[in-house]
Every structure is written in structure tokens, then in C-alpha cells.
Design a protein around this nucleic acid. Structure first.
Lengths: 130, 130
DNA sequence: ATTTAAATTGTTATAATATAACACCATGTA
DNA sequence: TACATGGTGTTATATTATAACAATTTAAAT
């Protein structure tokens, strides 16, 4: 089991914002939204984001440079993530499939190497946009 | 079968550079390297990169903001890519496993949705760095 | 309680990555 | 020839992210 991380003030403010957002948030959009709470500089945001990613409370959507809260109880640490991304509305959904994570964690490359850390982004159209 | 794309001058210059590079190249490093060939502005580089990605001659390593030439004869179009990335030396290898691509192309999310486009990045240590 | 180490914060400045807008040019084709 | 399409060259600017440094807070161990 993982240690519960107690968030610092900035981390909590930023996590709450991302967690409430229905869509991934970008760093400077986060900055804009938390300026009224006293977080004034990009670095304050990026530091909190780095930490939140590290402890698995949020994930970075690499292809979008955006961040979403983790909604997958099985990934308490940020290391093995999978998402679907709608190419029209940009909706992002975390994929919690045990089968998928099992397959990827057990995948061996041609050198027989396995990887416990990975990031997978699927692209397509979501239900609404199809 | 896919149409062969004839590259324009800028596209060819930039593709050749990336293709010769043993490691992924970043846009501004590419720019620096092609300035002697008359490509002076970031936009000229980004336009060529966009096109080369679109036609599958190169891929973008999203987590690194870097580009590598495609060395996987099966992905003639940039849509389904997988890489391993060494966290120490940053070596990136394209994974050509038919099993993996088959698994991912047939993967269904909880809504029964399949995805023909995806990008997977595995992280670990390469042979040398282990 | 006091010390100490580690982490976090606040701040200014700057680096690195990427696109907007516009005029012009090359090529293929009707 | 005219036209459409895509590529080019250019300047300016937007967006994303980090460097460097000093001050403060926190947690743990005396």
C-alpha cells in the first residue's frame, strides 16, 4: 500500500482545480485560475504539477501538454497510464482496464526487456462525436 | 499500398538530418543544423516536421518533444506507434512488434470502442544502462 | 525546545517549444 | 491560360517550461 501524501497548500489548490475540471487543464490556464488564491508565477504551478504527477494524483497528457486528475484507483503511483483522447472535442478518459495494464506490464521487447512504466494514448472519436 | 510521397526540398533536408541522427532530434536543434542549408526560421522546420509526421516518415516522441525517423516498415502512415525510451541515456527505439500492434488495434475500451491510432511510450533502462 | 535536513515557497528572469498572419512562388491540371 | 493546391520566406508573437537564488516551513531526531 502506498503512503498517503498530504498535499501542501499550493499542491492542494492546484489539485482541487484540476480534479474539478471536466477536461485536462493546461499549466497557464491553471495559473490564470489560481492567481486569485495567491499563486502568481508559472514556477509555482509547475512545481506543484511535478509533485502531483510524481505521487500519481494527476497525470500529464503528453500529446496535449495538459493535466488531469487520476481517476483510476489502481494507479496510485504515476507510472503506467493509458488514455483515450477524442480528436474532435478533446475529451480525455483514463483507461482502467486490468487486461490492458497486465498485457503492457508483461510485454517483452525483442531484447526480452519488460517495462513497468509506460504511457499510452489512444486517439479516436468519443461517443458524442461519432 | 501507400502512395510514395515526393519530399520537397525543405522536407528532404530535414528528413535526411533526422534519418542520419542516432537519437531523436529537437526542433531547434534541427533548425541549428540546417541553417547552413538556407532554412532560417522555426516555422520552416515545424512545417516540414508536421508534414513528415503526417506521412509517417518520422514520428514525434511526445514525452520528449523530439523527432525520429520511422524505422518500422509496417507503419507507413503515422498512426500507431510504440517506443521504448531509456531514462538514463535517452535512447529511443521504435517497437515493431506485430503482437503488440495487433493487441492495441483490437483493444476495446469499456464502451466497446476500438482505436486504430495510438501512441505508446515505454520507459526503462536500455541494455547499456542496466 | 533546538537543531538539522529536506522540502516548499516566492521571485525575477529567461529558455525552449510552437504558431499566427501575410505575401509570394511552384506545380499540376482543367 | 487560369486556377487550385500546397509549399516557401518572413516577421512577430504565443505558449510551455526551467534556471537561479534567497527565504520559509516542516518533520524528525535529538
Amino acid at each position: 500500500m502506498h503512503k498517503e501524501h498530504i498535499l501542501t497548500k499550493n499542491q492542494q489548490i492546484i489539485f482541487d482545480l484540476i480534479d474539478k475540471s471536466p477536461e485536462p487543464m493546461k499549466a497557464y490556464s491553471i495559473l490564470f485560475n489560481v492567481q486569485k488564491k495567491g499563486i502568481k508565477a508559472p514556477l509555482q504551478v509547475y512545481r506543484a504539477l511535478d509533485k502531483l504527477v510524481e505521487i500519481g494524483k494527476i497525470h500529464k497528457i503528453e500529446s496535449r501538454n495538459a493535466f488531469i486528475a487520476c481517476h483510476n484507483s489502481s494507479c496510485r503511483v504515476a507510472k503506467a497510464t493509458a488514455f483515450s483522447i477524442c480528436e474532435i472535442c478533446e475529451k480525455v478518459t483514463e483507461i482502467g482496464s486490468a487486461g490492458l495494464s497486465k498485457y503492457l506490464a508483461n510485454f517483452k521487447d525483442k531484447d526480452g526487456m519488460k517495462y513497468s512504466k509506460y504511457n499510452l494514448e489512444f486517439f479516436g472519436l468519443c461517443k458524442k462525436c461519432r
